[in-house]
Structure formats: C-alpha cells, structure tokens
C-alpha cells in the first residue's frame, strides 16, 4: 500500500499543534519530517481555515486531462454488460456492482479502455474479482498510464483486497484509502453542502 506523506502531514497537523506550527512556518522542513521532499523551485503555501471563508484548491493545469474531455464517458449505466455486473459512470467515477469474472471482465475492460483521463473505479459493491478481472484491471491501468492518466481503485472490499494482495499486485494499482471527512478540507477548505 502506498502511503501519502502529504496526507500524513495534514493529518498530523490536525492534532499535533507543535508540528502544525512548524508546517505553517517552514512547510518544506515540516514535510521533510514526514518523508516528503519538495523539489527545488516549488513553493508550498499552507493555509489555515477561517470560519467565514471556504478555500478550494484546484489541481494544476493538466494537458492530458483537458484532452480527455473529448472522450468524457457519458453519465449513466454502461450498456451491454453481461448479467452479474452493472457498470455506471458519474463524471469520472465508474461504479461497478456485482462480480468481475470471466463473463463480465471483458465489458469492464472495454468500458475502462474506451476513454482516457483519470478514472476512479468504485468497487464498494464488488465482492468477487477473478483472474480475468485482474487482467482487465491491468489492461485498463496500462491504457490510462499510456495516456498520462491514472486508474484509481476506491472502496475495495476485503475479498478484492485479499485477491490483489495474494497475487502481489496491491502496489501495482493506485488504491485509494478512505479519507476521513474531517481530513477532506485539506483540499477543499470546508465541505460545501
């Protein structure tokens, strides 16, 4: 599992006042404590929340993501998926529900390799992933990587996580760990309801 040192630093700054002070005063030195080396030429600016103002931080301009707009997946269910699995797009998130096995894996692979741009594959309701399913995920991972994009796997169930661990592929995929809603403001200021 890949641990994100930036996330670790933000989480620590929520409870460790001394570290928080160092992070604000000298972000690069404090991030180094968490194992994050900030490249030369990059400035880190740390903002503290304010009760009346929301802060949203947007990612840097990314040509690959802009081009990906040309191939935005249409929102809603993906058609032609065999029984046992349903796939549905919402913005850049593809939600899979059911089993990813030899019957359904080709449809998943096709859905994930038709487009490019970062994709979040939500596996919260997938409890079975066969070797054909793993092959489909690897193909999608490579397709997106070839287009300067990333396949993020989110909300893995224990059976799916165990399968990826067993075949030694947990580190090959970008698996996102659930983030506490409390920590989310690290990117968005306060959540907007």
């Amino acid at each position: 599992m890949k641990a994100n040192p930036l996330r670790a630093a933000i989480t620590r700054a929520c409870t460790d006042a001394a570290f928080r002070g160092r992070l604000i005063a000298d972000p690069k030195a404090a991030l180094a404590e968490e194992g994050m080396t900030v490249p030369d030429g990059v400035d880190v600016v740390v903002h503290e929340p304010n009760d009346d103002a929301l802060l949203i931080v947007l990612p840097a301009q990314n040509e690959a993501q802009i081009q990906a707009h040309e191939t935005m997946p249409p929102a809603g269910p993906v058609s032609g998926v065999p029984a046992g699995l349903t796939l549905s797009w919402c913005e850049r998130e593809l939600t899979a529900v059911g089993r990813i096995d030899s019957a359904t894996a080709p449809a998943l692979r096709q859905a994930l390799t038709r487009y490019f741009g970062d994709v979040w594959l939500n596996l919260a309701d997938v409890a079975y992933l066969s070797s054909a399913g793993i092959a489909a995920l690897l193909a999608a991972h490579k397709h997106l990587a070839d287009h300067q994009s990333t396949l993020f796997l989110v909300n893995l169930t224990d059976p799916v996580r165990n399968v990826l661990d067993l075949v030694g592929l947990s580190d090959a995929f970008d698996i996102l760990e659930p983030v506490s809603p409390y920590i989310v403001p690290a990117t968005f200021g306060y959540p907007i309801v």
């Binding site: 933000i10 409870t15 006042a17 990059v42 400035d43 600016v45 802060l55 949203i56 840097a60 907007i192």
Partner: peptide, 25 residues
C-alpha cells in the same frame, strides 16, 4: 454556500502547492 460564507479558490501550479489545514483538534 451556507449563509454568510464566502468562497476563495486557489489554483496549484507547477511551482506552487497550496495546502489547506483542517481545524486543529
């Protein structure tokens, strides 16, 4: 937005990263 709140949008660039800290607990 909730009543009375304002929004400020920051943009990361190739040379500047903004980090927003959640409140201290």
């Amino acid at each position: 937005l909730p009543e009375g709140m304002t929004l400020k949008v920051l943009e990361n660039t190739a040379t500047t990263l903004h980090l927003v800290l959640p409140p201290l607990v």
